[in-house]
Amino acid sequence: MRRTLPLFLTFVVGMFPIFAFFVPHRAVSDLNQQLDTWLVIVAAFALPLGVVNLVGSNITKIKRKQKGWPYSIVLLAGLSVMAFYGIMGGEQGFHPKFQYMFVNMVSPLQATMFSLLAFYVASAAYRAFRARNIEATVLLAAAIIVMLGRIPFGDMLTGGRMTPLSEWIMTKPNAAAQRGIIIGAALGAASMQIRVILGIERTYLGKGQE
């Protein structure tokens, strides 16, 4: 039973959205919407598990005075204050203090992390774009054309030819290759989903293969 029930549930819950994709009947679409709602509820129940783990491991860190323990205090303080005002703000979470912290603390911190990408792209590009062979040279040339095509300098240097050339690379070879990968990945995903639904793939359940 311990082995069969999860597989049976996976089959039913996995097949139903496929069924609902083809069957528009209200009874089916209502039940399908219910499934979506259950997913949100299940995820909401899992969140406290994560929070308990996070709080537990950081309290242990503080108790044992492990390396970097003062940061754990900052983390727990941030978590409690943000959660408190989030709950006080109701469904949309708009307590003025929550909004203040979001705009003035979360927002700039996230933007900072995202902008780190500019630095990482520079160092990764420096390392990766080497004309080692023909393929790498083509890649290098395409990268430089697209980069120049994305900035006004490119057109200034080439009398307006760089933007159309860069757009050509993006809309023709790039779009074609993207489609190829999308089709392959989508088929891979579909095949994996069918394996999961039919109970052929069980590794994620922690029960091994058939």
Partner: peptide
């Protein structure tokens, strides 16, 4: 692992014929 290679991983690593069949 590019795209579909990721989804083929469990079959590849286990060499389980049943999983290879789906690939």
């Amino acid at each position: 692992l590019l795209g579909e290679e990721l989804f083929a991983a469990s079959a590849y690593l286990s060499h389980e014929p049943v999983l290879l069949g789906s690939i």
